[in-house]
Amino acid sequence: MDFLTILKAIILGIVEGLTEFAPVSSTGHMVIVDDMWLQSEQFLTKYVANTFKIVIQLGSILAVLIIFRNRFIDLLGLNRFMKKKGQVTAVPQKRLKLTHVIVGLIPAAVIGLLFDDYIDEYLFSTRTVLLGLVIGALLMIAADKFRPAVPKVETVDQITYKQALSVGLIQCLSLWPGFSRSGSTISGGVLLGMSHRAAADFTFIMAVPIMAGASLLTLMKNWQYFTLDSLPFFIAGFISAFVFALISIRFFLKLINKIKLVPFAVYRIVLAVVVYIVYF
Score class of each variant (00 low, 15 high):
residue 175 L to A: 13
residue 48 V to A: 14
residue 126 T to C: 05
residue 280 F to M: 13
residue 43 F to Q: 15
residue 196 H to G: 06
residue 10 I to L: 13
residue 4 L to A: 12
residue 193 G to N: 12
residue 83 K to E: 15
residue 115 F to T: 15
residue 90 A to V: 11
residue 186 I to Q: 04
residue 258 K to R: 14
residue 45 T to F: 11
residue 267 Y to D: 03
residue 94 K to W: 04
residue 233 F to H: 02
residue 24 V to K: 08
residue 89 T to S: 10
residue 278 V to Q: 05
residue 50 N to D: 14
residue 128 T to M: 15
residue 276 Y to G: 07
residue 218 T to V: 08
residue 247 I to E: 07
residue 190 V to S: 04
residue 261 L to T: 09
residue 137 A to N: 03
residue 93 Q to A: 14
residue 106 I to C: 08
residue 177 P to E: 07
residue 255 L to T: 13
residue 15 V to E: 00
residue 137 A to F: 00
residue 192 L to H: 06
residue 255 L to A: 15
residue 205 I to H: 04
residue 135 I to R: 00
residue 267 Y to M: 10
residue 95 R to T: 03
residue 152 K to Y: 11
residue 262 V to D: 09
residue 11 I to P: 05
residue 65 L to W: 05
residue 202 F to M: 07
residue 157 D to E: 07
residue 207 A to P: 11
residue 117 D to I: 03
residue 154 E to M: 12
residue 9 A to S: 15
residue 1 M to A: 12
residue 240 S to D: 05
residue 190 V to L: 06
residue 262 V to H: 06
residue 274 V to H: 10
residue 11 I to A: 13
residue 52 F to S: 03
residue 110 V to F: 13
residue 128 T to F: 09
residue 165 L to Q: 03
residue 110 V to Y: 08
residue 277 I to P: 00
residue 198 A to E: 12
residue 242 F to A: 00
residue 24 V to C: 02
residue 108 A to G: 02
residue 15 V to M: 09
residue 82 M to E: 09
residue 143 A to H: 06
residue 202 F to D: 02
residue 129 V to W: 07
residue 132 G to A: 10
residue 155 T to G: 06
residue 279 Y to M: 13
residue 279 Y to N: 13
residue 27 T to E: 04
residue 257 N to R: 11
residue 190 V to M: 07
residue 184 S to G: 08
residue 168 G to C: 10
residue 234 F to A: 04
residue 45 T to N: 15
residue 86 G to I: 09
residue 42 Q to S: 15
residue 143 A to S: 13
residue 78 L to P: 04
residue 142 A to L: 14
residue 109 A to C: 12
residue 272 A to H: 09
residue 239 I to G: 02
residue 188 G to I: 06
residue 147 R to N: 02
